Simulated scan of single mutants.
Amino acid sequence: MSNNFLTPNQQKIKKKNIITLCTIAVLILITFVISMNTGVIKLTPMEVIRTLFGQGTAEQHLILFEFRLPRIVIAVLVGMGLAVSGAVLQGISRNALADPGILGINAGAGLAVMLFISFFPTTKAAPVFLLPVLAFVGSGLTAIIIYTLSYKRHEGITPMRLILTGVAVAAGISSAMIVLTLRLTPENYQFVATWLAGSIWGSNWRFVLSLLPWLIVLLPFVYSKSRVLNVLNLGELTAVGLGASIEKERRWLLAASVGLAGASVSVSGGIGFVGLVAPHLARQLVGAKHQFLLPASALLGGLLVLMADTIGRSILEPSEIPAGIVVAVLGAPYFLYLLARLKE
């Protein structure tokens, strides 16, 4: 909407939201720089700058460009994908607790990736680029099961039924994954255990390239549906009255959400709560309009995962704590807080 059609108060809110988005972007940049300096082998800020401009040593170039930068970029991209996926799920279900991890979508993607990794090495180029596709298939099938079991003809989808169904399906998938781990070799078992904890395991540029196309396509698509999400938040009757094709739009948005979650999980492992925490924090900062909520969620998700991965790499050097565990330490209490508020 042009500024000419906005009231002074709306223009003030828009300006405030833009400043908020820029502030979060600056925080990501600061964390990005700190993360480049974090690791077993320390690099000073000047060494990082010289290496970025091609003046560092061969060792510094290897550390920065082959190990740290891909992982940092993946952390930001994964956070964006999971956060926007959660924002979309909350929008189409009008459920404050909707999240790809809680609803079992991440578990479905993880099961597909785990099955593939159990039989094929991930060192070859082709399997790496197939992982997001397989994760999308796994998460898509899971979403269809949850949607089908949650939907009642005369009631549609109620928030509590959706959550309970998602938790039950996620528990079933997790049980299946535990059974599958009994058949793994020790090497694959160690990888799967690390993956389930939410470690940024795909830390090279091939994994960045396998994830990036999904975000380049799906994030703009979801943003183009901002007005639809705003209308859906008004309720089904109001949305129908305004001419929205509810089921059609829900299916498209659900597919986009599943694609974002599946592609992100395929290179990051089972990181939960990002899709829950980031949209809620964004809603408090910029309001409920998805024109600002979606970008804010993406930025906050990227910041959250990047901070979690940086803390996990630095707090117990030379050992690492998976980013998923760090996020869970923050996300689980927040989830319980939201659950308590909904019961009030």
Score class of each variant (00 low, 15 high):
Q190T: 11
G172A: 07
G108H: 03
L285A: 15
A332V: 13
V231N: 06
L285Q: 09
I315N: 03
R68W: 04
L182D: 02
A239E: 07
V133T: 05
I216G: 04
T20L: 11
D99M: 01
P186W: 03
L254D: 02
M46Y: 06
A83D: 08
W214N: 06
V26R: 03
N188G: 14
P100M: 10
V179S: 10
S226P: 08
W205C: 11
P295I: 07
E66D: 15
T158Y: 05
R68N: 04
S319A: 14
L299K: 12
R283S: 06
C22S: 14
R313G: 09
N106V: 05
F191K: 15
K124G: 12
G172E: 07
G301E: 12
H290G: 05
S199I: 07
S266A: 13
R153G: 13
S85W: 07
N37W: 00
H280N: 09
Q10S: 06
L276N: 01
V73T: 14
M177G: 11
F32A: 00
R68L: 05
L237V: 13
Y223P: 01
A296R: 03
G324V: 07
L281A: 13
V167A: 03
L254V: 02
A170Y: 03
N4R: 14
K42A: 12
R313K: 15
H290N: 15
R250I: 09
G287M: 04
L316M: 14
S224T: 11
I173D: 05
V217G: 02
L134W: 07
V305E: 08
G110R: 00
P186Q: 10
S245P: 01
A112K: 02
L336F: 15
L293M: 14
V133K: 06
L209D: 08
T185I: 01
F116N: 00
L215M: 12
S85Q: 11
T44A: 12
Y189D: 00
M36V: 02
V48H: 03
T238C: 06
E155T: 11
V169G: 13
K289Y: 09
A143S: 14
Q284N: 11
A143E: 04
Q291Y: 13
I178L: 13
A176T: 14
P220K: 10
L89N: 10
M307E: 12
V169L: 11
T310H: 06
A308M: 10
L62N: 14
S264V: 05
L29P: 02
S264H: 06
R161V: 08
K16C: 00
F335A: 10
A126E: 05
I315R: 01
A168W: 05
S297N: 08
A288N: 13
K289F: 02
Q190V: 01
V133C: 08
G324C: 11
N95Q: 07
P220G: 10
G312E: 09
F136A: 12
G91N: 05
C22I: 15
I216F: 05
V326N: 09
A282Q: 09
E66R: 11
G86Y: 03
S314N: 13
L218W: 09
L232C: 10
R153E: 15
G39M: 01
V258Q: 03
N9M: 06
L211A: 04
R50C: 02
K42E: 14
Y189T: 10
E47M: 11
R71I: 09
